[in-house]
């Protein structure tokens, strides 16, 4: 009896450590495989270099860093207001029954595979941009729209939780002094939920930075620094996924080094998000 207990306890402790172990393994392997390239090219020239042409031994990922930044920023520009608006509607204005139907619907969005988003971007959005705004269509804008939609579920459900967590008495207090519902929301509810909404934004940012397949399909993937939102871009994640299939030697290591940079960016975002969530 008590031996079984002891065994269960030890087994569960070991199991509990899996995620930590996996995390450690991921960090170890990515860094081990990528750091030789960083050492060979030099951190400054790797991160700051503007030319990526593995055939000529040029490994500068600045275009991809800038590309990831633009695309992510664009995604936030479209996804955050839309997601926040949707969350506001669900938590503050929608009849309870409507909200009960809409919330799971929005969560379905999270389950749609990213390749499907990419594909719709490819067949619907890219031609629209090409025909009406010019350029190749594969662009920062197309990526921003697709990613903007993809971060909606994260944005909506986390901001929704933050909004719901605002005590009802705050609202009642405002309504009681004669403010209308909109004023109540803007002057009391939104400020009170701000840390949670910020956390939602940061987590959405993490999703956007990390998304790969959808972006590849609509971004155009040129290794140049985009100067207009109609220019094609290549993100850090795309860089890895596009070339991993055939890369060897230093080239392959450079892709893993790209992974390291991505990892550091994501890590920084996570730390930021955690700080916000804690400050709640």
């Amino acid at each position: 009896m008590s031996r079984k207990e002891k065994f269960a306890e030890i087994a569960l402790t070991v199991v509990g450590l899996t995620s930590v172990a996996v995390l450690a393994l991921i960090i170890f392997f990515i860094f081990k495989e990528g750091s030789p390239a960083l050492a060979h090219v030099g951190l400054g020239r790797f991160v700051g270099g503007t030319r990526w042409s593995p055939g000529k031994g040029q490994f500068g990922i600045l275009p991809m860093i800038v590309g990831s930044f633009f695309v992510t920023f664009g995604a936030l520009l479209t996804g955050v207001p839309l997601g926040l608006g949707c969350a506001l509607y669900l938590s503050e204005f929608a009849p309870r029954k409507t909200a009960a139907v809409l919330k799971p619907l929005v969560e379905i969005l999270a389950g749609i595979p990213s390749v499907v988003f990419g594909f719709i971007g490819l067949t619907v959005i890219v031609p629209l941009i090409r025909d009406h705004l010019g350029g190749p269509g594969f662009s920062v804008l197309a990526s921003a729209i697709v990613l903007g939609v993809m971060i909606l579920p994260t944005m909506v459900s986390i901001s929704y939780d933050a909004l719901r967590a605002v005590p009802q008495v705050y609202r009642e207090g405002m309504l009681a002094v004669g403010a209308n519902q909109w004023q109540t929301v803007t002057s009391v509810v939104l400020p009170a939920a701000r840390p949670g909404i910020l956390a939602a934004g940061i987590l959405s940012m993490g999703r956007a930075v990390g998304e790969t397949m959808a972006v590849i399909m609509v971004a155009g993937n040129a290794t140049i620094i985009p100067v207009s939102f109609l220019d094609p871009v290549r993100t850090l994640t795309s860089n890895i996924a596009l070339e991993m299939g055939y890369a060897t030697g230093l080239h392959r290591q450079a892709l893993f080094a790209t992974g390291i940079v991505l990892f550091v960016i994501i890590g920084a975002l996570n730390i930021l998000a955690r700080a916000f969530i804690r400050s709640r």
């Binding site: 450590l17 172990a21 995390l23 990515i30 495989e33 990390g210 996924a241 992974g259 991505l262 994501i266």
Partner: peptide, 16 residues
Amino acid sequence: GTESLAGIPSIIFGLF
């Protein structure tokens, strides 16, 4: 460990 894992992009999992 669990939370950090949740934030890692899938392409990194692929590489790993």
